[in-house]
Design a protein around this nucleic acid. Structure first.
Lengths: 109, 109
DNA sequence: CACGTTGTTCGATGGCTGTCGTAATACGAA
DNA sequence: TTCGTATTACGACAGCCATCGAACAACGTG
């Protein structure tokens, strides 16, 4: 098992490519912020289909791509399911304290 | 002197009205991020005309309004000039560590 | 193989928003 | 009051982007 054959190879920017601007833009969307919170509140990984978001699957794919491109999420393919995890270590190195501050912020209001 | 008579009253949201989403959206723009950095690197206030940004004055006004509405900037009118300052205390209370993390981030990449 | 599941890709669309130029407003000085 | 300065207000416009539906692709199972 674990054949891992995505149609398009999954690319992850490395630490040196991360920018504060792309990160802020990625986190500034309500749907994406919800995604990040759900991943953060989950021990380990979250499958794409397991997210509780008020959008279509195609839109969800779009948001996950942006979060991955911004360096927020790492994705791993296993069969037909794609597992997402937070790149917490990398973010903490490049932008110390930022992710924690965002996650600690009041949810709405 | 110090007549302070703006055409439209300057409104500032209080702490309870600040949202992480509006804050992130406000900071996610390159021009606005530059504005925030310039205010943060200046002791005290910065007049509207003193900002070094690659946009027209009308566009600058627009960005300052968004930053004010998001609770990032406080504006004070003195004669014809409007002085802007960071609402550092308020931001630190509502979103602890966020502003510092953003300001500490690498300028570009 | 046939089917259902998972997730992506593609094209289209509507709305938001960053941008500008111009006009208008307020103030201070001459 | 007349001028110059500082800044905002008002349209208008273009580009981006979140959203969707439908089609496609890869995998697992019966």
């Amino acid at each position: 098992m674990n054949s891992a054959v995505p149609l398009t190879p999954i690319v992850h920017p490395d630490r040196g490519e991360l920018t504060i601007e792309a990160l802020l833009r990625a986190l500034a969307d309500p749907v994406r912020l919800a995604i990040v919170r759900q991943v953060a509140n989950t021990e380990g990984e979250v499958a794409c289909g397991a997210f509780d978001v008020p959008v279509t699957k195609s839109t969800l794919t779009h948001h996950l791509g942006i979060l991955r491109q911004a360096g927020v999420l790492a994705s791993r393919q296993d069969g037909t399911t794609r597992y997402n995890s937070l790149r917490r270590n990398d973010l903490d190195v490049v932008f110390p304290g930022l992710l924690d501050a965002v996650l600690a912020a009041p949810h709405n209001a």
